[in-house]
Amino acid sequence: MEKFSYVNATSLKQVTSLLSDSGWGEIMMIAGGTDLLAELKEYIETPKTLINLKTLPGMDSISADASGLKIGALTTVAEIAMHPTIQHHYTVLAQAAASVATPQIRNVGTLGGNLCQRPRCWYYRDETVSCLKKGGDLCYAVEGLSKYHAIFGGDPVYIVHPSDIAPALIALNASIKIVGPEGEKTIKVEEFFTLPAANPFRENVLEPNEIVVEVHVPKPNPNTKSLYLKAREKGAPDFALASVAGVFEVMGRTCQAASIVLGGVAPAPWRSTDAETALTGKMINDSVSAKAGEEAVKNAQPLNDNEYKVTLTQNLISRAAMMAVSK
């Protein structure tokens, strides 16, 4: 870990003006620190200054009303996982949050940090490797070891986005409020994340002087059933080999609308419009759900070691669809 100075944040204005002074990496923000500290220790990031966001007032609460949820970026993952309204009406979000890491990490890790966490790719995390993501020439996963890498949207960087919460928020059609020196703006969470073809170095549209402050989640229709399925090698802590955030509007066994977003399979949360189309308006049964899985992966492009993820993703989508119409 390199030496750095540490500044307690007092206002968003102060934070964005401090950030304006530098490009990426010179001045960084820390909240829970569960990802950033490991990056500092391993010399993946070597900032000169850290801004402690935990001292910002009023950004760590959840409010729920008839229109939906507002969740401050400093809200912990544990608070989201255990919030009764979220568990009841936004089940996919509670389940996704509960699947993150361990109780200790959920107790300090924040919503903003979860959305902005960096990839777990073993080439990216190796300080001695200068890969494409870090400004080098190659994504080593293409020819190297790719067991945990992307099967969708990889070109030219085959990381997977590690967030569990992000697919759930996108499936719920959530928006994200971002503050920068010019003021605030709100965009869809789906538009927040970017693919490496657009920018191989970052996973979202944030500029170096912008900060995520809040997430808005519209209230789902009453006939909504939502769920999060996460396949991993061990119980915890483990990132998804593949995950499915599914939000279904169901009448009996008929799926009136489906929102299906995948985690762990692409450099950004990956909406499967193919699966959504295959399910929408259909009576869900074994063959329809199986078909949705097949459709979802028909354009998958696995690397040398991750073909199993295609099977896994396909089966998880089928399972999610069947669970949506089960009692």
Partner: peptide, 9 residues
């Protein structure tokens, strides 16, 4: 994290 030892779960 990446060398996966079992936990109580």
């Amino acid at each position: 994290l990446d060398y996966r030892m079992p936990t109580c779960l």
